[in-house]
Write a protein that binds this DNA or RNA. Structure first.
Lengths: 151, 151
DNA sequence: GAAAATTGTGGGTGAAAGTGGGGAATGTTT
DNA sequence: AAACATTCCCCACTTTCACCCACAATTTTC
């Protein structure tokens, strides 16, 4: 299974094209058909799921109860913001304006690997986000992870 | 299971290449595919996990709920500072500039074995760190270790 | 103790990665 | 129908990196 990690700063040109870092590209499985699904990320960023990983989420979404108000709202938000984009010959994706606007991205973008997807952040926004909890990182870590290897 | 120990001083060339000490290399299992995962260490150093050891952490990370705010923050913090590097024909890894900068490494590096991973330190920084507890080493040891062999 | 193998260090080079732009084809607006 | 924007398919340039070779120093082998 793919596992995305790492952080790179890349440029966004006037056409909204964003290069996918080589190391992350190598983690892309053939089943993804060189296609990503863009969607709104949690927090102020754009999430890009390889097509094969996205399919797993589709299965989960299909299970939700459409008669539940909250589920309906969640589904509409996610799906209205989901769109497939394909890599061009230079291994770039075109990120439509509305996604860039949502994340406040312009000119430069930070690309972060996040396990089963990658995230696009406005550089300063990402720094602020990381710094927000910086002091309490160890605290959060110990809460989230208890003894990683079951030792 | 691999168990890294020892301390060696090596050089970092202009391309950021760092040789892995032969003794530690021999502790590297074939499953690691000659690959390390670099991360920010605890304290001011760079940690390098053999790929097979790192995979155990990945499994834990993948279990976390990305819809939980705290977990998300933890994952982004960890993963933004994680990157795979492969040994070249001369058994060296390339350590990206940002990791060298984080640890203040330039020209020379101290490589320390640390059980399941190795650590890269700026030489003076490591001396200072050891010195910090030097006087009370026996005291700290007695606190950390109670009856090592289960006696 | 000499020969051979391994280890640690440095550098050059061609391929790949990252970046940018022109101009058809398409579609939407005035 | 003209004007404009958007998308797609080329091409081109610069920088970076993966891969190769080289060699001194150290360790191992016979």
């Amino acid at each position: 299974m793919a596992f995305y990690k790492g952080q790179e700063t890349y440029s966004v040109d006037s056409k909204g094209r964003v290069n996918i870092p080589a190391k992350m590209r190598r983690a892309l499985s053939p089943e993804a058909l060189n296609t990503f699904v863009l969607t709104r990320g949690s927090d102020r960023c754009v999430a890009a799921y390889p097509l094969d990983e996205w399919r797993r989420y589709e299965l989960e979404y299909a299970k939700l109860n459409q008669y539940d108000e909250q589920s309906r709202f969640f589904l509409r938000t996610v799906l209205a913001w989901s769109e497939e984009v394909e890599l061009d010959a230079q291994q770039r994706i075109i990120v439509p304006r509305k996604y860039l606007d949502f994340a406040g991205i312009d000119g430069k973008v930070v690309i972060v690997g996040m396990i089963d997807h990658i995230e696009l952040w406005q550089p300063e926004e990402f720094d602020v986000y990381l710094g927000k909890f910086e002091s309490s990182y160890e605290q959060v870590a110990s809460q989230v992870m208890q003894r990683p290897n079951g030792q």
